[in-house]
Design a protein around this nucleic acid. Structure first.
Lengths: 145, 145
DNA sequence: GATATTCCGAGTGGAATAGTAGGGTATAGA
DNA sequence: TCTATACCCTACTATTCCACTCGGAATATC
């Protein structure tokens, strides 16, 4: 019961884009370098992020990616769900395919999974990339380098 | 990012034990029958549940399992963590092994994962097996069969 | 001592994860 | 127009994890 690397690195990568939001595009190679991570794999993730319209791209030299909208308008939840699909703590509740258990009508546990889903979504939908930027700014006060 | 079958079926199985709490032990075969599930696999789970002292066992004919304490004293969180390990939405935060990312000191996302962990735990730690019993009782009012 | 049950460890097929690899396409700048 | 730089796309692969299954030993009841 865990986020895969996609969600984890996806949020980090989107944060890099947020840092660069005012400056225009940034290339995958640069992001990969900053994150110290495989650019080929990041590339795949960005294909998805683009499909979900969270980023825009520009080809050729000086090309790269950019957030499609203001960092304050993109939540961590948007990023995670784009890369990992809808949150479903238990496979029987919450998702897209939502396989239908024949006992769901009177299942005593169904409610629990729904509550967990809601609580996860509530957390990740209330943190924007802009929030992360602010946090970073604040935490730098009184810090070296 | 999902509970495995262990957590899902574990809670259901423990609920069966809760239903039977006043009557003494119940065998894995019976539980498997009621849940319409593989008894060999349930067996494995019960080994873990016993190791974590959530159930007690008795061998031989008329043997079986029983909750180690009152249904009100066992939370869904106890069961899930026993079977799946500690809740860690992201692998870098919250767990036992807790692999140490070299950037964790100033990682902007670490906080998010901690918040998610907390919110999940809060939900599952506030629902006891006793609660599930009560819910079932109430939902039976006005219901056929 | 026959039978029902828990206990224990090993094995296995399939799916998902976490990538690699390699070629194609657009475009900025010389 | 050429070339280097970037995105774009599809396929492949090694490893790990999941969801079991199986066989047999230990133990308790009648």
């Amino acid at each position: 019961m865990r986020l895969s690397t996609k969600g984890r690195y996806g949020v980090m990568a989107m944060y890099q884009l947020a840092l660069n939001y005012e400056n225009g595009t940034i290339s995958i190679k640069d992001i990969a370098q900053k994150m110290d991570y495989s650019d080929a794999y990041l590339e795949q993730m960005f294909a998805t992020l683009k499909k979900e319209r969270l980023v825009t791209s520009h080809r050729g030299p000086k090309g790269g990616y950019r957030l499609s909208k203001d960092p304050d308008k993109i939540t961590v939840g948007d990023v995670i769900r784009a890369l990992e699909g809808p949150i479903e703590f238990s496979s029987c509740v919450g998702g897209s395919e939502n396989y239908n258990c024949d006992k769901s009508g009177f299942c005593v546990t169904k409610d629990i999974w729904e509550q967990v889903n809601d609580s996860i979504n509530q957390v990740i939908d209330n943190i924007t990339l802009g929030d992360l930027l602010n946090k970073n700014k604040n935490s730098k006060i009184g810090q070296r380098s």
